[in-house]
């Protein structure tokens, strides 16, 4: 508990230690701490920016998804309309073609019928004449009754 020169020696040691700390220890560590603080701040800012970008991108992708969907729906609607149109057109064309074919066939049939009738008339008149000849061979003169036969033939 006595005082002596140790007091002053301790004082000098104190200043030397404080000086050494100030010169060689404090600055590099504080610099590193500040740098780290800046790094962390930058990192946080970057993360914030990234989050913001992500939000924008999400919004953009939602937007384009919606647009795409709309476009697709439009395309499908157009295609359906077009298909209906094509079917309608085809139906009309088919009907016309069918009518044409039917009309053609009818005309041919009519023609055929007229020809057949003509033939039939010829044959029947021939048959009638033949029949009448066979009957009249005995009773009627062919020449005498030719006008009657012609009249019959006309009526057939």
């Amino acid at each position: 508990m006595n005082l002596n020169a140790t007091l002053f020696a301790q004082l000098v040691v104190f200043f030397i230690l404080a000086w050494v700390t100030m010169q060689f220890i404090w600055p590099p560590i504080v610099k590193a701490l500040d740098e780290r603080a800046k790094k962390i701040a930058d990192g946080l800012a970057a993360a914030e920016r990234g989050k913001h970008d992500l939000e924008l991108a999400t919004k953009r992708s939602t937007e384009s998804l919606r647009e795409g969907k709309e476009k697709a729906a439009e395309l499908i609607a157009n295609a359906e309309k077009r298909a209906a149109q094509v079917i309608e057109e085809a139906k009309v064309a088919a009907k016309a073609e069918a009518n044409r074919i039917v009309a053609g066939a009818k005309a041919e049939i009519d023609q055929e019928a007229v020809r057949a009738k003509e033939q039939l008339r010829e044959q029947i008149s021939a048959l009638v004449v033949t029949g009448a000849e066979k009957i009249l061979r005995r009773e009627i003169n062919a020449q005498a009754h030719a006008d009657i036969l012609a009249t019959i033939k006309q009526d057939l």
Partner: peptide
């Protein structure tokens, strides 16, 4: 021995 004696240095403390 004295309470204050500046001719002495405490070697152990130093």
């Amino acid at each position: 021995k004295d309470i204050i004696d500046f001719s002495i240095l405490n070697i152990d403390t130093m």
